[in-house]
Design a protein around this nucleic acid. Sequence first.
DNA 1: AACCTGGAAATACTC
DNA 2: CGGAGTATTTCCAGG
Length: 933
Amino acid sequence: MTGLEDQEFDFEFLFEFNQRDEGAAAAAPEHYGYAPSSVGPALRLPTTHSSLPAPCHDLQTSTPGLVLPAEHPAGYGAALDGGPAGYFLSSGHVRPNGAPALESPRIEITSYLGLHHSNSQFLHDTEVEDVLPSSKRCPSTATLSLPGLEAYRDPSCLSPASSLSSRSCTSEASSYESNYSYPYVSPQTSPWQSPCVSPKTTDAEEGFPRGLGACMLLGSPRHSPSTSPRASVTEESWLGARSSRPASPGNKRKYSLNGRQPPCSPQRSPTPSPHGSPRVSVTDDSWLGNSTQYTSSAIVAAINALTTDSSLDLGDGVPVKSRKTALEQPPSVALKVEPVGEDLASPPPPADFVPEDFSFQHVRKGGFCDQYLAVPQPPYQWAKPKPLSATSYMSPTLPALDWQLPSHSGPYELRMEVQPKSHHRAHYETEGSRGAVKASAGGHPVVQLHGYLENEPLMLQLFIGTADDRLLRPHAFYQVHRITGKTVSTTSHEAILSNTKVLEIPLLPENNMRAVIDCAGILKLRNSDIELRKGETDIGRKNTRVRLVFRVHVPQPGGRTLSLQVASNPIECSQRSAQELPLVEKQSTDSYPVVGGKKMVLSGHNFLQDSKVIFVEKAPDGHHVWEMEAKTDRDLYKPNSLVVEIPPFRNQRITSPVHVSFYVCNGKRKRSQYQRFTYLPANVPMIKTEPTDDFEPAPTCGPVSQGLSPLPRPYYSQQLAMPPDPGSCLVAGVPACPQRGALMPAAPGTSPKLHDLSPTAYSKAIASSGHCHLGLPPPAREAPTVTPAIQDVPRPAAAHPGSPGQPPPALLPQQVSAPPSGSHPPGLEHSLCPSSPSPPLPPAAQEPTCLQPCSPACPPATGRLQHPSPTVRRDESPTARPRLLPEAREDSSPNLAPIPVTVKREPEELDQLYLDDVNEIIRNDLSSTSTHT
DNA sequence: AACCTGGAAATACTC
DNA sequence: CGGAGTATTTCCAGG
């Protein structure tokens, strides 16, 4: 028991420590470059995915953090620019040691981490390593972190003794802590082992390619018991921090945690900790897991990189279920022991591990083994070269997953030909697969790239994205799950980018660049695991909707790559929500004159005879300016359709379209998502505008902030939403955006509830916009607006930008300078939003920082934070309350204009522009319509 | 036997 | 602090 306390203590300690580091990092300019980066990243890691547990991250992250950049590569970019060379350079940089990270297993490991994050992982890794070194270099700042880092890696081995962190680790050792500590501790844990392991690795390696070997080493924790554990972790780790549970040995932290981690303590039992084991334990859980996985994957990636080049195999290795934590061990016991025990256990696995096993992480059954195995997997992947991937895809330069990309550009258009069903129960790691996502009409979702006339196959990437009103980004609580079997006709390959599992599916010319997605399931990560990640701001509770996000990178003349992205309609992944929450899939009318009175048919699910339909006008800040319950025709009620009468708008004299939203309510907490609806001026002939589109742009920008627009269905549209100028993004802007995105993820705002209003989004958007230019990523349905991201392959650096987390602040500076890709988005981004990445900082701080950098004007940080909560509340109170917010503007423009307050004016202007455009469109339509009529 | 699922009990969280 | 209401996870069992 006391142990627990101790543990906790440790944790806290760790945090402080970390923070300090962060702070230090921030403080120490010099370090920035290095240490910070590392540090920062750690914090940030999250960028996109959060890093999860910091721990891992840290470690990894640290790497990652560093990684972050890695994440994207922005950093890479810089580093990478050159390509592999770049990597080396970077790595080299990183490690002055000179030896490329690779050389020393340890290093590699770190890098892996990075790798996982992004394609450029290697780079990242290197960076990481560098970082580490740096850390060493700058102990002071990074102080802890760095030390930790070092410790981690090898030291970890050492570590134990070593730094406090290590201690913490040890203490942490306790499994739980590990989680917590992760971030901080993680370093220690993590890697560390690897270092140790590495040697062994060799063993493992035998079977595998060197790369693998490296991986093995890393992964192989065997050496270090920890490793093994990690394996399991790995999966989690992948996820990110998910590992949190790491220990979790059981799945249920409950027990352990109940407090959330109590049990662990035992493990942590000092004993373990002290010993390498402890670390292990710590590491193990989270770290290991994470780190390991990363490592392994990272390693693999690195290797690949080395050998291959661009392809990313990354981590597919990530075992999906590797954890099986539950399986792993008895929760309780395991937990405690876990660390140790696991570690111990893990060791054994190692044996098992052996390459062979590795190859298939999948081995689900052997819990531990699997996990461990998981690590190995990466190698496996490596082994398999991916056909297509070769192209730029993998290149580090590719935009971060949280970047907003357009669905079409020039002759190309990536389109969802068949949408997935609105409901798909995701499976937990403790469960078996629940199958592939299906299409509502039977069959499976279909994606096709139009306009591509080359004969070269391309790789379609698929990951699980968010479905809230905010910018599209990888979902922290869900991961795509690769489905295999005789029922699956589409081949796929898993890779891990920045903690996000990505399914790579070939798009073949012979199939018209069309792919049937029958190989994608959805894995649900435990909220507790994810939320424990350091830097993870999103909330898992009630954040159960996702979208399938597809990306394709089309090689362009000149070595550039055009990246297109399309997201599916939202998919409800919660069993309960799917059964109880009303869902509106279609509405017969998108807009109507303010007089109302028209019948509108809603199609969807879970409608009740007494379902209510509430129309709402939201102010920019998210407040409900106006609420009105629409009359429903109960006689026509059907579980999947509702007939409602459009209520008259509060202001019958609007001169321009006003975007509002409505939702179906089955009860207190059973409300559908907001749907968009546009009130048109009374004198305006009805047009079937698609408000969404029109709106969105503007709304998004402004409204978004308002929250209105967001609410509306936009989700779908969001895909592109991103900012307007893709180019900008691509070029320079992009990074910024991405980062935000990354941030976003982390940001609590992510949580569904938050979405709505949460200014966060806005702020983010804004910020991003600021960065990006537009900053507004209006969630237009298709964001034509969004410019396609074209990247110069070389530019990897830019890519980095993408990774929000990556560019740790510290890094940024350096990178910026260094990578002077300068103009390139990445660089800029980083520079611009270094803060965003600011992972290092406390979560809250981080975001803010990010924001701030972006736009002073924006009240970013606060906004984000605030938003969330408010939103939620608002949601809660459905009652109609006509409020006259200042915001409430009569004008339709309000929506647009509203961008308001906090928002940057620029956005507003943009909005305005949009509005104007919209108006023109409407007029045109009208004229045409009128003629028709 | 391995998957998939649908259901629902057991837990966790919030309020 | 305890209870009620919900949401999340883990288990079961049938196909």
